[in-house]
Amino acid sequence: MSSDEEIFGKRPKEYFEVKNKKSVGFLLSSLYMGFMGSIPILLGILGFMKIYFPGAPQWFFVSNIIFGILMIIGSYGTYNFKKNGIYLFTASLIIDILFHLSLGLEELDAIHGLYFFIGFALVPIIPRWKFFK
């Protein structure tokens, strides 16, 4: 028994054995990441129409749209097994959350998006990490 097994117990090795590269779960997680990118775009458009947070400066809505586009590019890169896609999506999601918090918007949709990304989208991605370039 190795020292890792003594500390953590036996881990199921089947979890990390991937039979097919693009499963239904992987496809759903990529689609979810793309959907999460469409939310800031929609909020930016609603902001320009003065429906969403009318007192915010214009650069805030432009940055929302830019971060949404970056998230969609990151989800497309993830679907094509690019490590930069995961990094781009995660960085733009976190920076978007920080922009919301810096203006005093305590919106839970962006923060919940981070929790769902960690809990839902990374589950099928982590076993396929060896296929990413």
Rank of each mutant, 00 (worst) to 15 (best):
M1P: 12
I86W: 02
Y76W: 09
K130P: 01
G113A: 03
I65F: 14
P40V: 04
F53T: 14
M49Y: 08
I86G: 01
D4H: 07
G104C: 13
V24S: 14
G68S: 08
F26L: 08
K130A: 03
E14L: 03
I51R: 12
F61R: 00
N80R: 15
Y52A: 15
G55S: 12
E5D: 11
V18T: 06
S29Q: 02
V24H: 12
E17N: 03
P12S: 07
I69L: 15
G119L: 13
L46Q: 10
S75T: 04
G55T: 11
S3C: 00
I97H: 00
G104F: 08
G34T: 08
G25H: 12
I45M: 12
A91R: 08
V62A: 15
L93F: 05
I72V: 10
L70I: 09
V18G: 06
S29V: 00
S75G: 06
I69C: 15
Y115P: 01
G85R: 15
L31I: 15
A121R: 01
F61H: 00
F89C: 05
V123Y: 09
F8V: 00
E6Y: 02
H112V: 09
K10L: 12
P57M: 10
Y76T: 08
G44K: 06
A110S: 10
F99I: 08
D4Y: 06
A121P: 01
F61V: 00
G77V: 03
F120K: 01
M49K: 11
S63F: 11
R128S: 11
P40I: 07
G34Y: 03
I41H: 01
E5M: 08
L28G: 09
K83H: 12
K130N: 11
I73T: 10
L101V: 08
G68P: 10
I41E: 01
F117H: 11
S23T: 15
G68V: 09
L70G: 14
M1F: 13
L105R: 04
G55R: 06
L114D: 03
E5W: 00
G74Y: 10
L105N: 05
F67M: 13
S29A: 13
A91Q: 07
I45K: 03
P40C: 06
Y79M: 07
N84T: 12
F61G: 01
K82F: 11
F8D: 05
I125C: 04
M1A: 14
F116C: 07
S38Y: 04
F131S: 10
L101N: 09
G44S: 02
I65Q: 12
L103K: 13
F61E: 00
G68Q: 09
P127N: 09
G25F: 14
N20G: 02
I51G: 04
G9M: 07
I95K: 11
E14A: 05
E107V: 02
D109E: 04
N64V: 01
F26R: 01
K50C: 08
L101S: 10
I97V: 08
I41A: 01
F35I: 14
F120L: 14
G74P: 10
S75C: 05
S92A: 12
S2R: 07
D4W: 04
W129A: 10
Y76Q: 02
I125E: 06
T90Q: 09
I126N: 04
R11D: 05
H100W: 04
G113N: 03
L46V: 02
V24C: 07
P54W: 05
M33W: 00
